[in-house]
Design a protein around this nucleic acid. Structure first.
Lengths: 194, 194
DNA sequence: CGGTCTCTTGACGGAGTTCAAAGCTAGTGG
DNA sequence: CCACTAGCTTTGAACTCCGTCAAGAGACCG
């Protein structure tokens, strides 16, 4: 299964598992397909599964009072898509997770994941390290949003995720940057005149 | 030691440790005092210690090209102060950690913390959970910064950390909210006229 | 084709910044 | 204990960045 191979490579970046340990690891991961414009999670639902993306792309976003989407992040291949808060406490989520392309994932439920922590304590370490990395990423994002202009944040994004820009519409990218799509259009025009 | 008691209570929120396990836990934590306006960490240094605040307050901030401080967070009693990225990879930090009051902490080094993970795997779980909570907090902060006005963010802060507002100058709070201190002054005036 | 979605462009408005001046507060030394 | 300074806060005027609205031009898909 090519899907599990991708997960195996991902895990190997954090911890070392023997072949049999990896068998244990993947026992409770199940493949699933979410087609474009369908949802892995909707606001108000409980986030039952943590999903490892093997193909495609999600946007994880918050809908504000005005119905505008604020995009927390995009999850492409080898990223994880969850509402962590909803998942760990098994309470209603405030986030939506929607497929922007036909997307395939490997999902694991909360109870299965807790069992996995028991069975393979190394997995605890893996998720601790992954969480630390996410934390650093979000801290950097907060710093950018505090001090940088929209143009600087756009350039940072392009530099950091060059491949991703191609897959997104301008509106989605604008919702991630926290600006209007019209203004993003103007930024791009300004930059192209150099 | 009253300091260790605060840490004991903090740990108890996440995991259960026996008296002897807690003894092991605190072995490599050392008390330290950082007076007002002194630094626990400066940009460019390697973050050698993770610090649990037992009294006082830090600001953890980034200095941009113009020399303006962008405050990532304030660490008061029972909070942890670190540059995670610098600490886990033991590489130069981009953050500064400065005491806003005379502050006492319990610090642990990277190698001692790694030993602790070995000795007490439960501690791995504790930090995983703590990291998840921080992650949720920073995700929320990103959402706020994407979609809310300065006034809304100010009101959110006051509601979430009512005690903290008293301890901060307006400039510090403004640097946390990502606005000029003059504008925060105007927001407060506007709100008081109701 | 026809409709829907996306991108572009311009005019106008508002949120927030910058600069400067003045008042206030708090710490510091004599 | 007063005097002085340095930092903090307030306020206003001019300016900038970016949002909103509206209209038109592509682009894509059934």
């Amino acid at each position: 299964m090519i899907d599990f191979e991708l997960l195996r490579q991902h895990v190997a970046k954090y911890i070392q598992l023997s072949a049999t340990e990896f068998e244990t690891f993947i026992t409770d991961f199940h493949p699933r397909k979410i087609n474009k414009k369908n949802f892995l999670l909707r606001e108000g639902e409980i986030c039952k599964y943590e999903a490892f993306v093997t193909k495609g792309c999600f946007r994880i976003y918050y809908l504000d009072e005005n119905g505008d989407a604020q995009i927390l992040y995009f999850a492409v291949e080898t990223w994880w898509a969850t509402d962590i808060d909803s998942f760990i406490h098994q309470r209603p989520s405030i986030l939506n997770i929607e497929a922007l392309e036909d997307t395939t994932v490997l999902v694991i439920s909360k109870t299965d994941k807790d069992k996995l922590y028991e069975a393979l304590p190394k997995v605890e370490k893996m998720f601790r390290i992954m969480n630390q990395h996410s934390l650093v990423t979000f801290q950097r994002r907060v710093i950018s949003s505090l001090g940088k202009t929209a143009e600087q944040r756009y350039l940072e994004f392009v530099e950091k995720y060059p491949a991703l820009e191609q897959r997104l519409t301008q509106q989605q990218l604008a919702a991630y940057l926290g600006i209007s799509h019209e203004f993003l259009s103007k930024i791009r025009k300004r930059l192209s005149r150099r």
